[in-house]
Amino acid sequence: MAIEVGGKTLETDEEGYLVNLADWTEDVANAIAKAENVDMSGNHWEVVNFLREYYNEYQIAPAVRVLTKAIGKKLGPDKGNSKYLYELFPYGPAKQACKIAGLPKPTGCV
């Protein structure tokens, strides 16, 4: 599979995750979000950027439980809870936000 962004064709896997992490740009994120019916707000970007930083540091996409805890630590308890994160990313903060962030699917997600 593939997506088209700004005239470029980017390869994705069968679930829509980018194959090459280096292909990611903010425009790519917006395009993936649009396809997922997610309207990117500042709060969405906060989570997406957090995920990218986490991946840079640890070379994995975090499990949802780990993400929730880490967000709470960094952005406060009103954001570090599943309700808040699922409202932003209805198909799962780990799965859907990782896709928009251009990361592989979190290890252990099926």
């Binding site: 540091e57 780990v66 805890k69």
Partner: peptide
């Protein structure tokens, strides 16, 4: 090959 050594530092968060 992917350098997975930084991932050991994520274990604490798990």
């Amino acid at each position: 090959v992917k350098n997975f050594s930084p991932t050991y530092r994520a274990l604490e968060g798990y």
